[in-house]
Design a protein around this nucleic acid. Structure first.
Length: 99
DNA sequence: AGATTGACTTGAG
DNA sequence: ACTCAAGCCAATC
């Protein structure tokens, strides 16, 4: 039954909400933690509901946010204490694993 | 039902 | 390190 249900939706939201300030997670990690098969579904969910979530803590595997929101994310992350170098976040230090 | 699109990822050149 | 292509899966036309 690989389709995105309300449960998946909520699960992703919970995971994103659980990312502590000053940390970031990749779409792939969230997908894996949420039990989704691929990262694109996470991206899709985020696009649908980006309102009440810290979506700025979610970035691509390249350590770089999606192009449309890049400026916003970098600004917000910088405000949270994440030092973005040359428009990208040092995943090696900032990547949050969901234990 | 088939084609297109996309807040992704990985690997090759 | 950067760009390009293909793989991926679900939603939307």
């Amino acid at each position: 039954m690989p389709s995105v249900t309300d449960a998946d939706f909520e699960r992703v939201r919970a995971l994103v909400a659980s990312i502590p300030a000053g940390r970031v997670a990749t779409y792939g990690d969230i997908a894996k933690a949420a039990g989704l098969t691929n990262a694109r579904q996470v991206g899709w969910i985020m696009r649908e509901d980006s309102a009440d979530l810290p979506w700025h803590r979610v970035i691509g595997a390249s350590g770089r946010p999606a192009a449309h929101i890049a400026a916003e994310q970098l600004a917000r992350l910088r405000a949270e204490g994440v030092l973005s170098v040359d428009g990208r976040v040092p995943l090696r230090e900032r990547r949050h694993t969901f234990l």
